[in-house]
Amino acid sequence: MPRILRLHSYTGLDGLSLDEVPPQEPGDGLARISVLAFALNWGDMDLMENNYSFEFESLPARIGSEAVGIVDAVGPGVSDKLVGQRVCTIPYFYGANGVNGEVALVPEAFLTPAPEAMSDIEACSVWMQYLTAYFPLVEIGQIGPASTVLITAATGSAGLGAIQIARMLGARTVCTTRSDKNRAFLLDAGADQVVVTSCEDLLSRLDEITAGQGVNLVYDPVGGSLVEIYAKALAQDAVIVLYGGLSGEQTVLPELELTARNASLHPYSMMNYTARPECRARGVKFVQDALARGDLLPTVDRSFSLDDYREAFDYMRSKRIAHGKVLIDIQEKGPG
């Protein structure tokens, strides 16, 4: 029987187990995928602690929203032509249809052909990182060649995706990281400027880099006290896109600084945008076109076997030296 990762209680990784379940037939509008690889995401960790933008109706529940696989059956209303195709899943508020496992049920609307030139692992690293960055940079912030984008915790895969998209749009990127060891990696990844927050003063560096003009868009999964610092270096009409709470701290609104710049703060999940068909279509087309031109190249760190899922999650949240996506390769055999 196929094995799937299921959450049995909101107790983090301890609440997760690898369960064998009989394969389900796809219902209306759904395709069934024989999964080749799936990616791990920080959101999974938050979700497992019930600290996420949605919660499950009941437990146990499947988790995960980013997979690559071959369609092996389709439900009513879904074209048979999909059967046999290699597809990627587009992350969305997936409710009962998580994809982390050997099989997955996914609505047809959230499938897209896997880029032919890409390996399963690469194709599985595309959609979360690039769509997460696409909506803030292109649709919300509408950045262009005159813009400066502050990308915090930039070594994360969402940060790396944002660096690449910002470059495509001609914007200047200022990337933060806590460790000096990441400086060369971020410059290699395309960052225009790197600020190591453990040994540099972010505010004075932002003032210097932007010649006092400030940053137009902040793309931040950290929040907390960091917000108070960069809020003093915002450009007029700037937008702060807060897409996580990695700091573990409350985020206090820097009201005066934002008022002075007519700036706004937008707590953000890409899934709110992929939920809208027109938004999703624009985002998917943007990324597909960019992939076809070779403008975007996902960074893959490491893959694990399904048996080693715990190690994979532990690795993702460890202080990594390498950066990029952490994945489960279903075809990889575990030690057991």
């Binding site: 600290n51 996420y52 933008s53 949605f54 929040g223 807060l242 709470g245 409350q250 985020t251 206090v252 609104l253 009201e255 005066l256 934002l258 008022t259 007519n262 700036a263 706004s264 703060l265 937008h266 707590p267 953000y268 999940s269 709110n272 945008y273």
Partner: peptide
């Protein structure tokens, strides 16, 4: 304004769930 007399904390999850935006607002802008 900030008549609450305390720092305003961003309700991150509720705002992400609703895709909301927080705009400090002044007619001066």
């Amino acid at each position: 304004g900030s008549m609450g007399g305390q720092e305003t904390v961003v309700p991150l999850n509720e705002m992400i769930q609703t895709n909301s935006i927080l705009r400090p607002h002044s007619v001066y802008n």
